[in-house]
Each structure stands twice: as structure tokens, then as C-alpha cells.
Design a protein around this nucleic acid. Sequence first.
DNA 1: TCTGGGGTCCTAGGACCC
DNA 2: TCTGGGGTCCTAGGACCC
Length: 415
Amino acid sequence: METTATILHADLDAFYASVEQMLNPSLRGQPIAVGGGVVLAASYEAKAFGVHGAMPGWRARELCPDLIFVDGHFSEYQRLGDAAIAVLNDFTPQVERISIDEAFADVAGCTHLFGSPAEIAATVRKRVRTELGLPISVGVARTKHLAKIASQVAKPDGLVVVDPATELEFLHALPVELMWGVGPVARARLAAIGVQTIGQLANTPGYSIERLLGRAASEKFAALAWNRDPREIATHRRAHSAGAQSALGRKPAQPRVFIPALRHLADRVASRLRAKSRVARTVTVRVRFADLHSVTRSVTLDAPTSATVILAEIAEELVRAALRDHPKERTISLLAVSTSQLAQAHDMQLDLPLGLADEGRRPGARRGIARFRADRAIDRIRDRFGWEAVGYGSVAMGLSRSVPDAFRELAEKEL
DNA sequence: TCTGGGGTCCTAGGACCC
DNA sequence: TCTGGGGTCCTAGGACCC
């Protein structure tokens, strides 16, 4: 067994809100929320009132009357997130970025240059603070899972190093919900059999966890609870799916509503695929109804595509099918289009759409080429003049833009 | 009052093949 | 005529994470 703790997990604290407080000193020490209609991020001062991300703005104001709403500086988030990751990369190339504000690093290969993992972690924190003006918490442990838990325990603005000699004492005293993969449902089910700490979970027979949470979860949790996390740092990860969604408020479930919305979503997804020369074989739509329960419909194509019109037509067919199956639902509150089974587009053949099975709808190769060229033309115009220059504008369709496009882009993973 | 948007992974049943 | 088991793919739903 490896006896040294060389995995770092670094996590910027309340990232977006901290950036706003860094940029505007008058916001420091104040409860602030980035966003308006919906809270995208809350400062620690706001979190103390129970304000959190994804919360409707009115609810946040209710909880915290003095809450200050600020517009996001999204390009700054990207720049500063990248800069924080770059600090880790100054120590080792063994860096795995998880999101805009979070990454793992394995410093096993660079301790002879920079000192112990704990010293490296302290230096990272100091540099991010002095060079970027941002608080960052770091956990250091023998495995990724434990390093991540350590950084959560360290928050806000702290450092926790877990000594391998006492790691199980540390881990087993913590509540189960700190474990990766334990959310509200698993937590409640475990609580029902009296399991509240990771130690109790570790000492519960596997078959009773399996009965409760399924086989994969049972095996995973057993490994994590004994700190046997086999995952290694993966420096290059590609997304296995790409999608887009839009909350609609409350809209009638009618073609005049969902056709333009799907066109816009398909446009966003297909553009992203084409920008990375990717094609998708499986198309999935999600329709959420007024009561917030949702259904999905999907289809796997014979040949993959990245053509906007093809994606839009397939999405439309799938939504029609979903609505046919739920004739009593008259109102929709969200539409989503997602693509998966992604592959590299080696040549134009792969971009030729073959679509759904019925021959009547299947476009011939000639039309396929025309669509391919139309997409390419739009892509080029956008490269020069910006995304809004051409295409299916959301403004023209009356789509409520509760979330800026710049915020969406921050969450996109590398395709 | 009304509840975001980007993803990953797992389960279970059915189709289909060997 | 009926019976079998394993493997893979597809689809729908759901939990979870940032």
C-alpha cells in the first residue's frame, strides 16, 4: 500500500461570488448573490442565511432581505479559473480538472523539487490568494476520494492534510453525505437503517447496503468507506455527451412553442459538435411538465450526425411522441436536447444524415450535402461575427433567457 | 410569488444473437 | 416441440455532481 499522501484536491471557495467580492471591495463581507431571477452563486455571508445556487431570486431575498444581487463577470470566471489551475500545473502536469473551479493533482513526482505535499498545498493556496485574490481550499490525502473530502472539511479557505496512518479514524467519524455519490436519497435510506457515519457504513454488511442502494453503489461505497479508491488522475477527459436545455416558465405544449425552442437547442448542440468535429449517434429529448416531473425519449441512428436541421427534426419527432404518450399534460416547463454515442467525424460521409428509419423522411445524399454546407456557412459567419449574427435567435422566439449564454458556456465540458 | 444548466453513472426490461 | 444461458445493445427513468 502506498504510504504517502500525494493527491491534492483544490477547490475555489464560493467561486463566482468570491470573484465579485475580489473585483469590487465594497462587496467584501457582504451577503451577495450572482444572478437575478435565479441565484447562480452565493457568498459565504449569504450561505449563512440558507441562500444557495439554483434558488429562485425571490426565495433568496426572503431568506436574506439584505442580499445584494450582482451581475456575473463570466469571462473573468473563465480567466481566473484557468489561472488557478495553471498554478497547479506549475508543480506537476498530473492535473485533472473537474470543473471551472476544482481540480485534482498528484504531486508524487515533484516533491524532490518543491517539498512535501503539505508544503506544496500551502504554496498553492498562498499563490492563488496573492496572485488572484481568491480563497481556495485544499485537501491532501492518499486517494482522490479522501483528498476531496479533506478539501470539503477544510472549507472555507483552509488546508487539511490527512495522514495515512490515521486516515480511517478521520474518515469514519464523518457523516455519510460527505461521501462522493451519497445524496439526499441515499442519505435518507441509510439513515433508515441507522447508518449516519462513514464508519457505520464501512461496518455494515455489503448485502444490506446492496439491498438498499443496488450493487454498483454498494461496491463503490464499500471501497470508498475503507479508502480503497482505485481512481487515478486522468489528465485528458472528453465528454461522452453534449446537450442543451432551456426552462420555459409555463408554456402550452404546442408546436408553435416547442418547434422554435427545439430548433434553438439543436442549433447550440450541433454547433458545439461541429466545432470539435464530433458527431452523435443517439439523440435524447427531455420534456418537463408543469408539475416538474419529466419524461425522456431517445433514438439511436444508423449513422451519426452533427447537422442542425437533422437534430432539430429528430428532437421534434421525439417530443411529439412524448406528448402523445402524455395527452393530459397541457403545459411544459422545460425542454432539453442531448446527444451521446459521440464519435470523431473523420470525413464528410459521417456528416451525411440518415436519421430516422422511415424512408420518406430520409434525406438523400444530395440534400445531406446541402445541409452540411449550410451548417458550415453558418459556422463560418459566427466565427467572424459572433454567435448571434445568424441562426435561430432565442430573442426572436421569445425564449426567456433566465441564464446568460456566457454562464452556460462555463459549464460545458471538453468534447 | 416559482423553482438553472452542464454533465456522469446505474438499473431494469426487452430485443436480438449465438 | 420446448427449453437454456450469456452477452450486447437500446430505451426510460432516476440519483448524483458541479
